[in-house]
């Protein structure tokens, strides 16, 4: 028998200090990312008075059902009409509505720009492109006034549609369509396929992975919106979970009685769970989409 270990040095059980060092750094980094959320989870399982007296908790207590139950089902807010469930539903409407709207609009626009010869192509491209110059945060006040003058405040339309006015998705699909081999469209034309047929039967199926990737990124983006929902929705029935965070902070700042720490942490955890779960489960699509879209 020859010595097989010498040809595969990696399999050799040799203790290396540098590996220990590398792992220590990675473990420290992972802990830094995990610890705040772990503390939120453990603290959310304790009674408010206990938290007020002893500070954030490093281990689980017995009030986890109560805090999560209250966060989800207790009617809160000024009007005492909304529950966490309402906000959860609104968050899903915003996240999914935004992602789907973005995909449809930007696929159509990118298809027009890449596959058609027409006079306004360059003009349309630049009109869309210019939107990256001015994030919503910068033009927030005039945007709010426009929505108000159209009468779209406190509506799902007013919440979702103005967020769609950006170029990100269009660029992503433009880039992808440009990488699709030229021969495909030539072959389709020889076979007599028109532009609509080519789009639906060839391009959309070809883009499936890309659509999934952009859906994840856009869903997370929509779900996590804060400033826009804060301005547009004053009706609590339309609050999203992330918007609800602002109410918690306000109650916390007024602070005459003991704040509901446990419940606040529970709501924060519920607000991060769906987007985090999607990013973890569809990790490879998400990473692919992120790395390729931003280039």
């Amino acid at each position: 028998m020859t010595d097989t270990t010498s040809t595969t040095p990696r399999a050799k059980k040799r203790f290396r200090w540098s590996a220990v060092f590398d792992h220590s750094i990675l473990i420290l980094g992972s802990l830094f990312m995990l610890l705040p959320v772990f503390l939120a989870l453990t603290t959310s399982s304790h009674d408010n008075v206990e938290i007020q007296r002893e500070g954030l908790k490093f281990w689980f207590g017995s009030d986890i059902d109560e805090n999560f139950g209250n966060a989800m089902f207790e009617k809160g807010g000024f009007t005492k009409t909304v529950t966490g469930m309402t906000m959860l539903m609104n968050s899903f409407i915003l996240g999914i509505g935004f992602a789907i709207g973005k995909i449809i609009l930007s696929m159509m626009a990118a298809y027009a720009i890449v596959y058609f010869r027409f006079r306004f192509a360059t003009f349309a491209f630049w009109m869309i492109f210019t939107t990256i110059l001015l994030p919503l945060e910068v033009r927030i006040l005039p945007s709010y006034e426009v929505i108000q003058s159209i009468g779209l405040t406190n509506s799902y339309t007013g919440l979702i549609v103005p967020l769609l006015a950006s170029a990100t998705g269009t660029f992503f699909f433009r880039q992808f369509f440009l990488s699709v081999p030229e021969e495909l469209v030539e072959a389709a034309r020889i076979d007599g396929a028109g532009p609509v047929k080519f789009f639906i039967d060839i391009l959309v199926p070809l883009s499936q992975t890309m659509i999934a990737a952009i859906f994840i990124i856009m869903f997370v983006y929509g779900w996590n919106q804060y400033l826009w929902p804060t301005l547009i929705t004053t009706d609590e029935g339309l609050f999203t979970l992330v918007r609800g965070i602002r109410q918690i902070i306000q109650a916390y700042a007024e602070g005459s009685e003991i704040p509901e720490y446990g419940q606040a942490m529970a709501l924060a955890l519920i607000a991060m769970l769906p987007p985090v779960a999607i990013v973890i489960f569809f990790q490879s699509w998400f990473v692919k989409g992120l790395v390729e879209s931003d280039k």
């Binding site: 058609f116 001015l134 006015a165």
Partner: peptide, 30 residues
């Protein structure tokens, strides 16, 4: 743009219209 693009006049405008409308109302106006 692709070399072998389609030469349809109305379709690209129709495809771009929703995106451009939203951008005009919620971006250029504000």
């Amino acid at each position: 743009m692709k070399r072998a693009g389609f030469a349809n006049y109305w379709l690209p405008i129709l495809l771009l219209l929703p995106q451009l409308t939203i951008i005009a109302v919620f971006f250029y106006w504000p």
